[in-house]
């Protein structure tokens, strides 16, 4: 049983890691804790429903549709809601993202109705069995794609000029402006990327389960994942995601499914009390 639990935990954790990476990116670039990230996951799931199930687009086009639409939505939100609040109190900014998630949820439920939708994509749904462990192909694919995205982003940050500018902006907005960086544009791109990563997570989660606004709760797990890993640390976000996936699976298998979230949030509280800069963050940065 344990290997099975570990496998599902890591596979799910990879998806959380992906969503958490988007979350951490937005936070690092713009200092905004995006409580709507969970809803962005749902948006991704319903973009998949729109393209695949309603418009009957071929899968490749569905993917492109999701990425482009999610990027546009993220950028538009930055331009319309986040930018006007530059320099305002933390509560205002948090509340705008919370209100945004309320609005997005309402819109989705109005447009698509309250019932969950099944996703039809050609993604593999079979299972193969290795030494008694049932390995779902979809889980494998989700984990694989997540790791691919994570790898690509690592390269992007390390080796491209724009990636460098994003890291610099995360380090300080005024310093970035002084150095000639178009901070507003960098922020918009960060929001677009954060939204795209959540949407890809949403695509997989909708395929693994169903597309519904219930996925928000799963998407919101990115929050504890990021904080546990270290709010300022990109690798921390990913490891945090894996950790949350593992904890969830272990708790629901060995304790009870209802208790899964509690272990995560208790760990979150402990980390906040003992190591607010996160397991992988740097101490100096944890102080606010």
């Amino acid at each position: 049983m344990l290997p099975q639990v570990l496998f599902s935990g890591l596979a799910l954790g990879s998806i959380y890691g992906l969503v958490a990476l988007g979350f951490a990116l937005v936070f690092k670039a713009t200092d905004v804790l995006n409580f709507a990230q969970g809803m962005f996951v749902v948006v991704g799931a319903f973009l998949a429903v729109t393209a695949g199930t309603q418009l009957h687009l071929p899968f490749a086009l569905t993917l492109m549709f999701i990425v482009v639409a999610a990027a546009l939505i993220g950028a538009a939100i930055q331009a319309l809601l986040i930018r006007p609040l530059t320099g305002r109190s933390m509560l205002s900014i948090i509340m705008v993202t919370i209100a945004l998630s309320i609005v997005l949820r309402a819109l989705i439920e109005i447009i698509f109705g309250p019932q969950p939708r099944a996703l039809t994509t050609p993604m593999p749904t079979g299972v193969f069995i290795v030494e008694g462990v049932r390995i779902s192909q979809l889980h494998m694919l989700a984990a694989g794609v997540s790791w691919l995205c994570l790898g690509l982003f690592a390269l992007f940050f390390r080796f491209t000029t724009f990636g460098l500018q994003m890291r610099a902006t995360a380090n300080g907005h005024e310093a970035a402006l002084v150095s000639g960086i178009n901070v507003d544009f960098v922020n918009r791109v960060a929001w677009a990327i954060g939204s795209v990563l959540a949407a890809i997570g949403g695509l997989f989660l909708a395929q693994l389960q169903l597309a519904s606004t219930e996925l928000e709760g799963i998407g919101l797990l990115a929050l504890p994942a990021v904080v546990i890993g270290g709010l300022q640390s990109i690798p921390g976000a990913i490891i945090g995601g894996l950790l949350v996936g593992l904890i969830e699976q272990l708790a629901s298998s060995y304790v009870s499914p209802r208790s899964a979230d509690i272990f995560v949030y208790t760990l979150l509280l402990l980390v906040l009390m003992v190591r607010p800069w996160g397991l992988f963050g740097q101490r100096e940065l944890g102080r606010v």
Partner: peptide
């Protein structure tokens, strides 16, 4: 903890 961390 302060700020965001406290909200969390």
């Amino acid at each position: 903890v302060r700020g965001l961390y406290f909200v969390l």
